[in-house]
Computed example of a mutant assay.
Amino acid sequence: MNPIRRTFVLALTLAMSAALASGLAATTQQADPPYKDLKLGFVPGPYEDTFRKGVAPILERQGYRVKYVSFSSGLEANNAVFTGDIDANIMQHSVFLEAYNQRQKTDLAGIVHVPTPPMGLYSRTYKAAADVKSGARVAVPNDPVNLERALKILRDLGWIELKPAANPIDVTELDVTSNSKRVKITPLESAQAPRALEDVELAAVQGNFAIYSGLKLTDALALEKMTLPYVNVVAVKKKNADAPWARDIAAAYKSREFQKTIRDDRFYDGFRLPDYFD
């Protein structure tokens, strides 16, 4: 073969091989799952540990890298989702989320329920609800939504009566129509409830703050009868509710792997489990 022709054929072959290799590499790269940093917000409580233990391993195998951001209050965590500083938060129930949306004119949405510890009535003075004396001081959350939950615990004990069908967003102590136990209701910031046990006989403590402060659900004098609206959710901006990463978070929570992780851990005894659990 002519040396010039041989050189041309060799160059053409090399070029075609390079192009083929480049095409295969591009195809392989496109087939890989999208790589995304997920920024998730939490307030004190069990939700971050639950996520790290049962959800993060699933997402990380799918190519996600999770960043954890701590907040001291639910308001801060919701604001961060709305402004886009984080992708989602895990710390609130649907009623609280709806109240936030109404007051802040925002559009956050829950995409999946998560295991949730119930609110409980705790005491360092009494060992049983039957022992509580008339006139006892009871610390309750000062936000209307969680105040209603606390008042319902007192109602179910037979200590007070409430107006029927009170709007949880607007409930106050004025919705108490009868107080046969003469309990002295003291509203305060929810996160302060565990420490208030040093100053009052009783405190209605949200489950996340109870666990964070070392209180056990089994030590509560009474636990709320938790219904679905009060089971916590993963919250995102409404426009992101159907994003691939949001669907992947929801799927990880609903997976058999996550359910087994929770059921095998006695720490979660007493938690209200989402309806998707078998």
Rank of each mutant, 00 (worst) to 15 (best):
V236Q: 01
E224C: 04
A220L: 05
P229K: 08
L217T: 06
K237I: 10
P229G: 05
I211L: 12
S213C: 11
V233A: 01
V236I: 09
N240M: 11
A222P: 05
V236R: 00
S213Q: 08
K225R: 15
S213H: 05
T218D: 14
A210N: 03
A235N: 03
K225T: 08
V236N: 01
Y230N: 07
Y212T: 11
F209L: 10
N208G: 07
F209Q: 04
S213K: 05
K238R: 13
M226L: 15
A235E: 02
V231D: 01
K225C: 08
A210I: 07
M226K: 06
Y230F: 10
V234E: 00
T227Q: 13
N240I: 08
D219T: 08
F209V: 12
L215C: 02
P229V: 15
G214C: 09
K216R: 12
A210K: 01
D219H: 10
T227H: 11
F209H: 04
P229Y: 04
A220V: 11
L223Y: 02
V231R: 03
F209T: 06
D219G: 04
T227Y: 13
D219K: 12
K238W: 12
A220K: 00
F209S: 03
Y212R: 08
K239T: 12
A220M: 07
L217S: 05
N232Y: 04
K239C: 09
N240T: 15
Y212F: 15
L215R: 00
Y212K: 09
I211S: 00
G214Y: 08
N240C: 10
G214W: 11
Y230Q: 12
G214R: 12
S213R: 03
A222F: 09
V231K: 03
V233C: 06
V231H: 02
E224F: 02
K216P: 03
K225Y: 11
Y230T: 06
K237V: 13
T218N: 12
D219S: 09
T227W: 15
L221T: 04
I211C: 03
L223S: 03
V233K: 01
L217V: 13
D219M: 13
S213T: 09
A222C: 10
V234Q: 00
Y212Q: 14
L221P: 05
N232C: 10
A235V: 10
A210S: 06
F209Y: 11
F209I: 09
L215N: 00
F209D: 04
D219R: 10
A235P: 04
N208Q: 14
L215D: 00
D219N: 14
T227F: 15
V231S: 02
D219I: 11
S213W: 00
G214K: 11
V233N: 02
K238S: 13
K225V: 06
A235Q: 02
A210V: 08
V234D: 00
K225W: 15
N208T: 09
L221Y: 05
Y230P: 01
A235T: 05
K237S: 08
K239Q: 14
K225G: 10
V233F: 03
E224N: 07
N208M: 11
K238H: 12
L221E: 07
K238A: 10
T227K: 13
M226P: 02
V236C: 03
K239S: 13
N240Y: 10
N208E: 13
V236L: 05
T227M: 15
A220R: 00
L223H: 02
K239M: 09
Y230G: 01
A222D: 15
